[in-house]
Design a binder for these strands. Structure first.
Lengths: 191, 191
DNA sequence: GCATCTCTCTACCACCTGGTAGACAAACGT
DNA sequence: ACGTTTGTCTACCAGGTGGTAGAGAGATGC
């Protein structure tokens, strides 16, 4: 059966549903119909709805992380990584807003679902905080950087929600809007 | 039976549920349990779940509108109304964040639910746009003001979502955070 | 050729959802 | 005193939910 792509298609459809209508409001039948398959096929690939949510979150976080790594690696040597990361996040948000909106949706599911998420993000956050504070920074400075990163993350997600909202209200976010969002985000990070 | 306050208590519980977990994810039984009453009592006061949603939205929009009117009326004569309105919105958002988060939740229910909302807000928006553009402004300027107001509204709601998100991540939004949000919002309105 | 593995399906199930019908009791109008 | 109105309840119902059991069709390995 040539190793089907069903799993990926389920993840994509679930991501779209979860981000646009919410996790609890998106039934397995909804996802199944979008994929063109029966609910039981979803339960074959992911043992339960919770497992599907976890899978979607892991994929989203993974993709996000990869994009960030790529941005840091490809930055022009002279310039700070912060700008490159911000640009990459905004680019990703423009191309696949669901990726970011999903995170806000998941954050409301209670600690049971947020647990694995925190586990995935935690170490990454520590690394980023250390990098942002600079080498040899004292723990207090690193802690401050960490807080600033959390605030920036919240701002990014809120920005994605805002874009979604604007679109629903019939006002397409344009380049000028994006430019303002960018400088706002930089201000949070570089304080 | 001394004219019970059941209706108000239902509205309050429904607002909290809708804003925190989403409309579709909050069942009538959930709301009923929070109020300490049976589901059928809710259906007595509001004929259907849709009617309950409409009721909650109307109450939220009404309360929001009243606060804005109060702010405009009580502003110091020399200064622009914009600052007063922004401050009042932020104050309300800090005191009752659910009021704002609810609007984002409702905006995802599709035009059936958004229709009445747009109907309530529409005229108000026109009035505000005219006031912001100044007396005797040409239609194009009023249209630009209108767009700026929509953007500001989206920003306000996104800010409320951001605050909710920060709280869930264990970072309490503080005064400095609020001050930055305020100047950001003013920048959108005054360009 | 045949057993096995992979993948999707049909057939159920128990439970939850929004909603209807109507009983019942307290308060009210006259 | 007594019918009516008001507010809450119990008892249901049809349809949707996440999930289980297991059949069956292709591909694969030997």
């Amino acid at each position: 059966m040539a190793r089907s792509d069903t799993r990926e298609r389920i993840l994509a459809a679930a991501l779209a549903g979860f981000a646009r209508r919410g996790v609890e409001a998106t039934s397995l039948d909804d996802v199944a119909e979008a994929v063109g398959v029966r609910k039981q096929t979803i339960l074959y690939w992911f043992g339960s709805k919770d497992a599907l949510v976890t899978g979607v979150v892991e994929e989203a976080v993974g993709e996000l992380g990869e994009a960030l790594d790529r941005a840091v690696a490809a930055r022009r040597p002279g310039r700070s990584a912060t700008g490159a990361v911000v640009d990459e996040v905004l680019r990703l948000g423009a191309r696949r807003p669901d990726l970011l909106v999903l995170l806000r949706e998941v954050s409301r599911l209670g600690s049971a679902a947020t647990g694995p998420l925190a586990e995935t993000i935690g170490p990454r956050l520590d690394g980023a905080a250390a990098a942002l504070a600079g080498p040899g920074a004292d723990p207090a400075a690193r802690e401050r950087s960490r807080r600033r990163l959390v605030e920036a993350g919240a701002r990014v997600i809120a920005t994605a929600v805002e874009a979604q909202l604007l679109t629903e209200m019939g006002v397409e976010p344009d380049r000028a809007w994006l430019r303002r969002r960018r400088s706002d985000l930089l201000a949070v990070l570089e304080g």
